[in-house]
Amino acid sequence: MTLLTTVFAAIISTVVWYRNAPKDEMKVGILCWMYWGASLMWLVDAIYEYASLRAEYFTPAPADMLNDLYLGLSVVALGLIIWLARLFIKDPKGVVKEALLGSKK
């Protein structure tokens, strides 16, 4: 479930990046890299788990599935927080700088 959640996040962020490419004012590219990197890593985890559990891997207990979904959503939220922090630090549109300097005037 965590893998699935991250893959969906990766696909959505890639579509958003592609719509605005080659301009990347909102730095969505960083979200794509993060989610795809995590998806590939969890894919490996899933393959190893499948190798040990076989068909049982596809029938997880509802409580485990819910916990994994909760984890997946938390991971997506963390990715968004990292992206937002980076966006504000890089401030490509100068909005943060403008807001800070504007309030001083």
């Binding site: 965590t2 991250t6 960083i30 890299w33 993060m34 989610y35 795809w36 990197g37 995590a38 998806s39 590939l40 890593m41 969890w42 984890l71 938390s74 991971v75 963390l78 990715g79 990292i82």
Partner: peptide, 20 residues
């Protein structure tokens, strides 16, 4: 840098899973 982004991004999110 593409490789860096994939590795750092994935590692950061997986580290969170390990904290979890």
């Amino acid at each position: 840098k593409w490789l860096n982004n994939l590795l750092w991004g994935g590692s950061a999110l997986l580290a969170f899973e390990h904290v979890w």
